[in-house]
Design a protein around this nucleic acid. Structure first.
Lengths: 196, 196
DNA sequence: AGATTAAAAACAAGCGCTTGCTTGGTTTTA
DNA sequence: TAAAACCAAGCAAGCGCTTGTTTTTAATCT
């Protein structure tokens, strides 16, 4: 008769602490205190501290993958796909700010085996974006010289969101995604110059 | 009669280790071993482990500030300024990849006082970029709806570089900066649509 | 409803180890 | 020959985690 939510609570508190102080700077005693128990009591619910990190990052990876999948598989036009993919990506971050922070910032603290699992999911996610951009280039919707470079730039900009979303005032995820795609699609220049 | 380079060597090895494993995951014994000495011997050259982190991040902050200063103060046109600022920013990262990684990834591990110092320098740097963009908007060179948002996007994308520059093959910093500004200024879309 | 009972949850104590750092003495360097 | 660099040894504190025991919980049986 497991009391419900116990483990979830631990994961949530861990996300908060890991995202704020980092994985290595957070102790088992920090986590247990945040959960209102002693350090030993934690181990009725988890096997190791690293389990917590893995579960948080793995859930994060799955959120990204599952939110992008239906968009990539759909048959919308590339520009619309990009817009929707951006919204999805940003939603995952803003709706799970602490878990996303841990996912981006602390996944390298995982040991070899589990780190590889996360690495693979990151690669899969990046490949989905690559496909999305390729379609746009092939269809003539995007004018991209260096696809790999463009992809890395886009994802860097989007991933950086977890570091400043709090500061962006009361923008909704949709508003953020709109401004995002607007800049990425149209650029910053005034448009007087001809496109090359 | 201090043997030259001893302290610099320690800083360099620390940068390598901090950037690879993170500050908290790196021990004094790791550093001393990399320097070919025992852990106690380190303390003839440093006062504390955190000194190392601070000196690395503070030097990084100064590199960014000093490389951007003359560009912001110059009287070039905004588009050219942006281009040159981007090159400078990217040069700092690519020429000091390990220190830059520590600067971006580990500065929050500093304790309150020193963390504030770095925070202030980061703010100053961001304000310089803000001014650069504002000038461009005032002069009509940039068409930016939300300046703060654009600034955060640009810096996020540029700062992300430390995570993937190794993967970008043999692009020179200038080539990276060119592709960067090209996308940011002109956008990804094919240009058939009118600019709003 | 109240008593029973076994699983689940939490505690109290502490183990083995690693951490950042210190100290006192020895070697190296110029 | 004296300052600088390094070693050898180890301290106090904190780490992740384990163990044996007690308390709490909620389903079961009168």
């Amino acid at each position: 008769m497991p009391r419900i939510g116990r483990r979830e609570r631990i994961l949530e508190k861990s996300s908060q602490l890991f995202s704020k102080q980092g994985y290595h700077a957070t102790t088992i005693r920090d986590i247990s205190e945040a959960c209102g128990m002693l350090s030993g009591s934690l181990y009725a619910h988890i096997q190791s501290k690293e389990d917590l990190l893995f579960e948080i990052t793995d859930r994060g990876a799955e959120l990204f993958l599952q939110s992008l999948r239906p968009i990539v598989d759909s048959r919308a036009d590339p520009v619309d796909k990009l817009r929707r993919a951006m919204i999805a990506h940003i939603r995952v971050i803003t709706d799970n700010l602490e878990a996303a922070t841990v996912f981006f910032h602390e996944w390298k603290s995982l040991a070899s085996e589990r780190r590889r699992i996360i690495q693979q999911k990151r690669d899969r996610y990046e490949r989905m974006w690559a496909r999305l951009l390729s379609e746009g280039v092939e269809s003539g919707a995007f004018r991209i010289v260096d696809e790999k470079f463009a992809r890395l730039l886009i994802l860097s900009a989007a991933n950086g969101l977890y570091q400043w979303y709090r500061r962006s005032g009361d923008l909704t995820p949709e508003q953020v995604a709109d401004r995002f795609t607007e800049i990425l699609l149209s650029g910053l220049s005034d448009g007087k110059e001809e496109k090359r």
